[in-house]
Design a protein around this nucleic acid. Structure first.
Lengths: 129, 129, 129, 129
DNA sequence: GTGGTCTAGACCACC
DNA sequence: GTGGTCTAGACCACG
């Protein structure tokens, strides 16, 4: 799978998983009816504890993104893509706002911020084409 | 003082204080030799526990940003502004990279990201002129 | 057959089957010597895994409600109706007590509980006449 | 506190706690602004693992029943009583319906069910006046 | 002291 | 094999 976690992100690991699953669903990388990796499988792949994955998946179930198929695993729920797409921008926006707010507090010039954004944007783009 | 904390920021409160003090020093809002608010004063103003402020100040002392003046309080250290200015961009850049990386993972179009940045930038600008 | 399962019941599926078979035997819907549906047949009808049905039947055999007829299937055992009738009220009573106990804890007025019971009773009656 | 759990209830322990807290809030036993027992305290009292209590409390937070007071504990949220009162009847009704449905399947006469309800109701009433 | 997160490993129900 | 629940115990941030 295409998930990756960064322990130094600041966000809790389970929350990183929640966000990434939502992004994957929003972007169509996983479609309704498709199964997500099993708890144990993903835990092994990310080298984290199964409970942490389970917690992320539980959260996603309670938000209606995933649905349990008894004894089989978890699949992407029917209306999830629409739901996730609408959340996607908000999830990004919230974190972006924090950073920009901080940038402003640090008295960085808006143009300097824009330059910074452009610089990082191209850096991130190249990162893995 | 011009500090403000956001409990839902994800960052620890003491860390928000550390960063804001650095930004204030970097931007010249507080100059070497000037005193920062006392632990109690700032704690009262931000409605948080004095221990949390104390911890932030301790951190800033150990980084050489603040210096204790016996019996008086804490002042901005001599070489602090230069030190903080050099950190400033990096602190922002690190968080910005995380967000942009996430935005990319969510398959948001770079142009859409730019639009988002512009939108939030103006929002933050207006926030408190 | 007249069995139906509710995945959100809280009770395990195999247990729901066990109880319903007992009720059917207690009520005379299935009589001693009659065959119950085959594991596969019932599993297909209820859209559940055959293992789950098998487990319920195993449980019923060990309690003497069903008896294996070699090469043919499972039939209702000889003394089963009497046995099941005596259990029937207790099975219901146990769960009823839980609910009423909870209702009391929630400070629902006894009369309101009675009204609730009546309401649900008529609702259940109409459900499938 | 007035919480008690029953391992043989069928419901998960954390769910029993969730329900009981809601009932306590709905009934006014705990009012907005009041603290619930700490995770460790309640865990000790109920002789269960703190994680199980924490999970229940987390669930209640995400439903807006409880709110965290940083470093202090969890308090009943502002609008919680109204919210819980409206849920209360539904929570009871759902379980009641299951039992009555089962009672009907077992071909118990409605009047016999009523007698059973009355009997258990008075039994529960006396239980602890 | 408080809750939050994570790890480790157990047992259960179901497929 | 799957997820769900629970236990046990660790570390962290905050008051």
């Amino acid at each position: 799978m295409f998930f990756s976690i960064d322990p130094s992100d600041g966000l809790a690991i389970y929350d990183q998983i929640v966000r990434q699953v939502k992004f994957a669903v929003a972007g169509g990388a996983i479609r309704p009816g498709e199964m997500v990796p099993s708890v144990r499988e993903l835990a092994k792949e990310l080298a984290i504890n199964p409970n942490t994955v389970a917690r992320a998946y539980r959260e996603l179930q309670s938000q209606g993104v995933l649905a349990a198929v008894r004894g089989t695993g978890l699949e992407v729920a029917e209306g999830a893509p629409r739901h996730c797409r609408s959340q996607r921008v908000e999830l990004i926006r919230a974190r972006l706002r924090q950073v920009l707010c901080e940038a402003k507090q640090s008295r960085l010039d808006p143009d300097e911020i824009r330059r910074l954004v452009e610089h990082e944007l191209t850096a991130v783009e190249k990162q893995k084409v």
